[in-house]
Design a protein around this nucleic acid. Structure first.
Lengths: 218, 218
DNA sequence: TGTACATCAGTGAACGCGCGTTCACTGATGTAC
DNA sequence: TGTACATCAGTGAACGCGCGTTCACTGATGTAC
């Protein structure tokens, strides 16, 4: 009734997840079951008592990584800041997280792993990350991001209260893409010969985004 | 003196490269020497007469893929178009190429392959791609992308005649990141529940970029 | 022009590795009476 | 409270696979005299 078995199970599951995270951090998103097992100190087949396939473990990792980025954003966010600076803080937190946990960032935003398609259960975790940016940036309409199709596609976000404006939401999605793209290029070494170090260009990007989103107190 | 050997060698090298390209296209950037050999109809060890390691073949693939994107851009570009539309054409060509050749796009702009670091010889090929965008977008200064550090980092591009303005070059780099990020998110399925299909958001992004870069005939 | 030697493309076997997953098993924990 | 049975975590061996790379080899092409 103390549920020793249950407790052990929870602990071992946590140890496996931690090992998988370390494995991804050190060796990249193409994590192997055997490497994880080795790290936990289990025989490889034992891991299958907890995760029925590699895919299941990967999915758990993806959800966990979104969660960690979500928490990093939550703890960086500061509702008292003026809009532009608040957006910049989120952007900097994303970049810092990505540089600190390169492979986790690539696990969620990088090249899809061969033979792995992120299942539906990862969607809410991904949405939680985006919601931070929507909350800050999608407060008012943004010119040039309207149009019936776009408004229709993003009406859901407004209905769910995730965005106050559809065109604002559209603009935020585009700016999220810009952030992901910047970090992707930086991590891939594509800025090495030019904007190197990349901070000044990143700061200019953040300022431009604040202007685009109408967050610069105009 | 007809150089039968020499000619055969060139032909086989081309066949290997074509096979490697097909292999990457169908099975992703984590290409294997044995799969390429099978495709060419050679025994796996024979490939080593042409490329001393997998890394060398990958490097050739990377250079080739940059070259193909470069050519796609060159043939899409049209100097007679007004600035904003000309930029949009380049953006659309990039997205179309990426959707058509997903794995090649990911080979050059996606998650770095484990154990593979793109060597210096890929740099000029990458620069050729960027130059199309710089030519169109970096003609005049862009407010908010100046500053001594940034201007210093990008002075080289101006000196080489690749950009007419350092702040314009900075803005173009940031917008290139936005394009890469957009396509990365789209290919990764991150826009599926929201901006789906993605064309309207992409068009809004292109229009916003034209405005940011001062290409909208203002 | 013909012969002797050097070069090189391609073969096939092998080395040593790591992988995902299955399976029959042992021994400990939990449950029903 | 004690006993009989069911559940389950972890083991160790195995299957069948694909990989990058090396090596001694054969036979064809090229070169020097």
């Amino acid at each position: 009734m103390a549920g020793v078995r249950e407790q052990n199970r929870a602990e071992t599951t946590a140890r496996i997840l931690a090992a998988a995270r370390a494995e991804v951090a050190e060796h990249g998103a193409d994590m192997s079951m055997r490497a994880v097992a080795r790290r936990v100190g289990l025989v490889s087949s034992a891991v299958y008592r907890y995760f029925p396939t590699r895919e299941a473990l990967l999915t758990a990792m993806v959800v966990e990584s979104y969660g960690r980025l979500d928490r990093a954003l939550a703890s960086a966010d500061d509702a008292d800041l003026p809009g532009g600076e608040r957006w910049a803080v989120l952007g900097r937190a994303t970049r810092a997280w990505a540089k600190d946990r390169t492979h986790e960032f690539q696990l969620i935003y990088g090249t899809p792993l061969p033979g792995y398609a992120a299942p539906p259960e990862t969607v809410p975790a991904a949405a939680a990350v985006a919601s931070h940016f929507l909350r800050v940036g999608a407060g008012s309409p943004v010119e040039g991001f309207g149009g019936v199709t776009l408004e229709g596609q993003l009406a859901g976000l407004v209905d769910e209260g995730l965005a106050a404006s559809a065109s604002g939401a559209a603009a935020v999605l585009a700016e999220l893409a810009a952030l992901v793209g910047f970090v992707t290029l930086e991590l891939g070494g594509h800025l090495v010969g030019t904007a190197d170090p990349a901070e000044p260009l990143f700061e200019a990007l953040l300022a431009r985004q604040a202007r685009t989103l109408g967050l610069d107190g105009g």
